[in-house]
Every structure is written in C-alpha cells, then in structure tokens.
C-alpha cells in the first residue's frame, strides 16, 4: 500500500466524509429527478422504511425476525462448511493420495457460483432449511478447505521432521502439528467463508417460502417496493460488516496469543 497510515481519528473522519459524499450524491440524483423515483428511492425514504421495518412486519415478519431467520440458515451453512472443509483440508494436506483424489473434482466444483446450485438444492434438500443451507454451504466451503489444506501443506518442514523423529503418528501429526500450524490460515479461510456464505444468502433465500431477508427482498421486488429491497440490502451489508469485524478481532486475539504479533 502506498502512503503512510493516517492516525485513527483522521482516517475515521475521511470514512465519514466519503459516506456523507455518497449519501449527498444519492440525494441529489433522486430528489432532483435525474434518476426516476421508481428506479431509486431517496436515502430518506430508505432510512424511514428501515426504521419502520424494525417494528412493523413485511412479508409476515419484522426486519429483525427476517434477519434472525437468515442468520440461523447462514450459521448452519457456514458451520457445516467449516466442519467438513477444515478436517478434509487438513487430511488432504497430510495424505497425498486423498489430495490426488479430491483436488481435481474440487477444482472444478469451486468455480460454480453458489446460486447455480439453487435448482438442485431445492430438488435435493427442499425449500425448508436444507436447500438454503446447501447453497450457503456451496459458498462457504471452498475457502475453508483451501485454507486448511494450504495451512497444512506449507507447515515448516523442520517441524514435520521434528515430529517424525519424535515418533509421532498420523493422528497426532494432524491434530498437534498440522492443525495448530494451520490455525492462522484456517482463521483467514473462515473469515472469507463467513463473507462468501453471507453473500450467498439472497441466492439461498430465493427458494424459501417463510422468513428471511432474502425472502423479504424477493417479496418486495414482486410489489416493486424499492425502499424495502434497499433496506434488505443495507441490513445485509451491516450484518456482514459486523461479522467481519468480530472475526477480525478474533483472529487478532488468536495471533497475539500465539505470539505471532506483539
């Protein structure tokens, strides 16, 4: 990156400035009528809709309820991705045979966008909880696997040699050498997974028939309620940011604990 890091206060000020500029431009474009209102609601309309939806229901639920329903699917999807991806990645990092078997299939599958799985997710796992979870899983799984694999594969060779000369078996090698060595990489992968999983949410909720932010947005789209759609987008953005900030903190804490950073 070019340039020196600004003091925290100044960089926050700049952030605020850019937000205000963005909102100002948006206001000018909409209020002046340059962009017709049915295509883009004004910031004020969106804000008032946002606060309205916090308490009054749309499409059968309030915004917090929609968010809660989404978050539950999301949490299941990402946890499942981590629970399968991380162990599989570590095993592939240790057993060459498994690596050779899984990698070609995986390398093809991971380029298929999560939303492409929508028809099959609905067909195989239904539109209740299973289908959406599978779509979120499809988004969150690849980084979990790739990062665990890379973390395990690129452990300092000396440490593997040290463990081998100490008579360490495969299980212990994976649990006590590869896994802890791969933790920073795994955490970074989980962060990416958490982001991609949350991004897959709207796709996942195209097929649900009950609550969820994505569901809310699809319903609003049907009745051309742009302010409601925008509210859903903003809610997704805010929650995504909160998830990322929390995971960053967790990663920083873990790195400090491991003495990787002062």
């Amino acid at each position: 990156m070019n340039g020196q890091a600004l003091p925290l206060k100044e960089s926050m000020l700049l952030g605020l400035l850019s937000l205000l500029l963005f909102l100002g431009l948006w206001t000018v474009l909409t209020v002046s009528g340059i962009v017709p209102r049915q295509f883009l609601p004004t910031p004020l309309e969106v804000a008032s809709r946002f606060f309205q939806l916090l308490t009054s229901p749309f499409a059968g639920a309030t915004l917090p309820t929609h968010l809660a329903a989404s978050f539950k699917r999301y949490a299941y999807g990402v946890l499942l991705a981590a629970a399968v991806g991380v162990p599989l990645g570590l095993l592939m990092g240790w057993f060459r045979l498994l690596d050779d078997i899984v990698t070609p299939i995986f390398d093809g599958l991971r380029f298929i966008a999560p939303i492409a799985w929508v028809p099959f997710a609905a067909l195989w796992f239904g539109t209740g909880i299973g289908g959406p979870i599978m779509i979120i899983f499809a988004g969150a799984f690849p980084p979990c696997l790739i990062n665990a694999y890379r973390g395990a594969r690129f452990v300092e060779p000396r440490l593997i040699e040290a463990a081998k000369m100490l008579g360490t078996n495969d299980t212990r090698m994976i649990m006590e050498v590869l896994l802890p060595a791969a933790v920073p990489s795994i955490i970074a992968g989980l962060r990416v997974s958490a982001g991609l999983g949350w991004q897959s949410l709207v796709g996942a909720e195209l097929i649900v028939a009950a609550a969820g932010v994505g569901f809310m947005m699809v319903q609003a789209q049907g009745s051309v309620q742009t302010a409601t759609v925008m509210t859903g987008m903003i809610a997704i953005g805010i929650v995504g940011m909160i998830i990322d900030v929390l995971l960053r903190q967790g990663e920083g804490w873990l790195r400090r604990r491991r003495g990787l950073e002062a």
Partner: peptide, 13 residues
C-alpha cells in the same frame, strides 16, 4: 535417532 536442529524446530504452540 533424536535430532537437534540448527533452528531448534520447537513447536511454537
């Protein structure tokens, strides 16, 4: 055949 490495190779965790 225990080995002592130049760069110690201790498990940091």
């Amino acid at each position: 055949r225990a080995v002592v490495f130049q760069q110690f190779a201790l498990f940091p965790w």
